[in-house]
């Protein structure tokens, strides 16, 4: 783990939560496109190009209908482009639909990057102290999922020998066989779970309020980045309260005018959006230059956290 991923989970969560908030608050193509560019840049630097390409189709399936549906159902606006089935299609509504599409795409990209950076154990780590029981249930569920998957595979192998199979037979029999396999898994897992519970009890679960073990330490770099993010967020919010960062489409499209206040707000937003990119890029550059200097052979491939390998199975 290196770069932005190696930072304290709270930094990442502040970053993604802030981006999500601004995506939903700000309504301006320049801001949104900057944000998408920053996130894509971050992911490319992290070597996640294939991940972006892989989820592109799904993203478009969700986002494109918004662009199409809006002008069909909203007829506000002053500039009528043409008539479609006796309905006026206005320029404003088309632009509004496109804007919503960009919003959806940015939300999508935020989560794409989030899924790579904030691994479930980091997410859980943040929640463990505020909501210990919910976090514990989630964590235990998280542990059971791969376990149950492996068990299900073994059960399917064995039960295949007694004619219970999801591969052959009519749809009805396949479904009912699948459920027989799940039932075997259920009974077995419930019995075993009791031993888990006994071991929890023997190790003192429920005696007193739990503390949480800190694998992550908030270091100076984290604090500096947090401060930078905070400054950027405050600047952006200030601008939003002043009414900047909003594209006025209705009642009629106003050509955007960049004032110096708006430019200041944009700078603050850029600081916020691009800070992780800077962290990641700096580290990459340091590695490359030091490798060139001292260890010419040390330019190595990417090495992910266990979690990524395990998810992709």
């Amino acid at each position: 783990m290196s770069g932005f991923r190696s930072m304290h989970p709270s930094v990442a969560v502040v970053y993604y939560a802030g981006l999500l908030l601004f995506t939903l608050l700000l309504f301006h193509p320049v801001f949104l496109l900057t944000e998408i560019a920053a996130l894509l840049g971050l992911m490319l630097l992290q070597g996640q190009g294939r991940r972006i390409a892989g989820s592109l189709a799904f993203c478009l399936i969700v986002a494109v209908p918004a662009a199409l549906l809006n002008p069909l159902f909203s007829h506000r606006g002053a500039v009528i482009l043409f008539y479609f089935m006796d309905q006026p299609i206005t320029l404003e509504a088309v632009l509004y639909g496109l804007m919503m599409m960009v919003v959806l795409i940015s939300v999508f990209v935020i989560f794409l990057s989030y899924n790579y950076t904030v691994t479930p154990d980091k997410f859980m780590y943040l929640f463990a102290s505020t909501a210990p029981k919910s976090a514990l249930i989630t964590l235990m569920t998280l542990r059971f999922v791969p376990l149950f998957q492996r068990r299900l595979r073994r059960i399917a192998l064995i039960q295949g020998a007694r004619g219970v199979s999801v591969r052959e037979g009519s749809l009805r029999s396949r479904m009912s066989d699948g459920m027989t396999l799940l039932k075997t898994l259920l009974t077995w897992s419930l019995e075993e779970a009791l031993q888990t519970a006994d071991s929890m009890k023997a190790r003192g679960y429920g005696i007193r309020r739990r503390t949480s073990y800190a694998v992550y330490r908030l270091d100076r770099r984290d604090i500096r980045v947090l401060a930078g993010l905070g400054a950027g967020a405050l600047g952006t919010l200030w601008g939003w309260f002043q009414g900047y960062g909003m594209l006025m489409l209705y009642p009629r499209l106003k050509p955007p005018v960049f004032t110096w206040q708006e430019a200041a707000m944009y700078a603050a937003f850029c600081l916020f959006a691009a800070l992780p990119l800077w962290v990641e890029g700096k580290e990459k550059w340091l590695w490359r230059s030091s490798a060139r200097k001292s260890l010419p052979s040390a330019i190595q491939g990417k090495k992910g956290l266990h979690w990524t390998g395990y998810r992709s199975q």
Binding site: P120, D121, L139, M140, L142, R143, L147, E192, A193, Q195, T196, D198, S199, M200, A202
Partner: peptide
């Protein structure tokens, strides 16, 4: 302290 028979079933976390 107590350790049980089944190594898999005793583990709680991920």
């Amino acid at each position: 302290g107590m350790v049980f028979q089944n190594p898999e079933a005793q583990i709680v976390m991920e």
